[in-house]
């Protein structure tokens, strides 16, 4: 029982980090129609900017995180502006963009490794005191990450449901031509979506690195499997589904690590992804239109 509860605790934290990342990832896909497989690369590069500001800039890790968030945001915007959009304008097959994204991911990850080397890094940051809840153990750092994730979920839900920008994002996602005919400047909406989802990638990358304690340039390379599994579980392009998908995948992978083998975490996520693609490709929240 104690193993189950402590694994559940780990699962909740993993789910919190994954939820931040998946919401940004699925928002990007929904509004821009780009399956940005370089998302993990943006995450880890942002985490390293936070590291640089924390260690070499002597900033508190939470203050340095702002630099990581800004990096994710700007990098994603530039990625779209100078790489994805020119390819999209050529009306190539969707698989072309996926291959381009894969290339960007490899360049981003191994380019970073070429700069920082193969060493392990960690932030100068305290974990804080330990808290016990229902047999689960959390550090103050982990509780802060969970609180940030909940805050992000509420903020994204509020953005999409109650703001003019959020409604324009959903309209652009549903029918970009009709949105334009209604006066929505969809290019501006898409650029803003890249800035916001990129900021979430930067935030996710930094809290991912904080949570793992030590990280390297390739730490987020397989994270895309978790992102895809969480996104397809909730429904491609469905931010609310992404939150549920992230919670399920985060907890399922940590429980499987405890009861089966930690090496199989990604395999479990991949099996869930395959299962969803086979039986319900539009996910729990999506409709057949989104598949």
């Amino acid at each position: 029982m104690s193993v189950f509860l402590s694994s559940l605790g780990f699962g909740i934290i993993s789910a919190a980090v994954l939820a931040i990342a998946t919401v940004g990832f699925t928002m990007q896909f929904a509004v821009t129609n780009v399956l940005n497989l370089a998302y993990g690369s943006v995450m880890i590069n942002s985490a390293f900017v936070t590291y640089f500001l924390n260690i070499h800039g002597h900033l508190n890790a939470w203050v340095a995180l702002i630099g990581g968030v800004a990096t994710g945001s700007v990098a994603s915007y530039l990625l779209n502006r100078f790489i994805y959009t020119p390819f999209q304008r050529r009306n190539l097959a969707p698989i072309t963009i996926v291959i381009v994204a894969l290339g960007v991911d490899l360049c981003g990850t191994f380019g970073l490794q070429a700069i920082v080397g193969g060493s392990y890094f960690s932030y100068r940051q305290s974990l804080g005191r330990e808290w016990h809840f229902l047999g689960m153990y959390f550090s103050t750092l982990q509780l802060t990450i969970i609180a940030i994730a909940l805050g992000v979920m509420l903020a994204v839900a509020w953005l999409l449901r109650y703001t003019r920008l959020g409604k324009a994002m959903r309209a652009t996602s549903a029918n970009p031509n009709l949105a334009r005919n209604s006066g929505v400047r969809t290019q501006w909406v898409i650029s803003t979506t890249w800035l916001i989802s990129g900021a979430l990638a930067g935030l996710a990358g930094t809290v991912f690195a904080m949570n793992t304690g030590v990280f390297e340039a390739t730490s987020a390379q397989l994270y895309i499997v978790l992102l895809l599994a969480a996104m397809f579980l909730g429904g491609p392009g469905e931010p609310y589904g992404a939150m549920l998908g992230a919670a399920t995948i985060g907890i399922a992978t940590e429980l499987s690590a405890a009861f089966i083998n930690p090496q199989y975490k990604m395999v479990i996520a991949f099996l869930i992804l395959l299962g969803m693609l086979t039986f319900r490709p539009y996910g729990l929240f999506g409709s057949e239109r989104t598949a």
Partner: peptide, 17 residues
Amino acid sequence: DVFPPLTVKENLEIGGY
């Protein structure tokens, strides 16, 4: 001719964007 995932009210709001 409409935005299916948006409510009727939200469709009208986008019309008045």
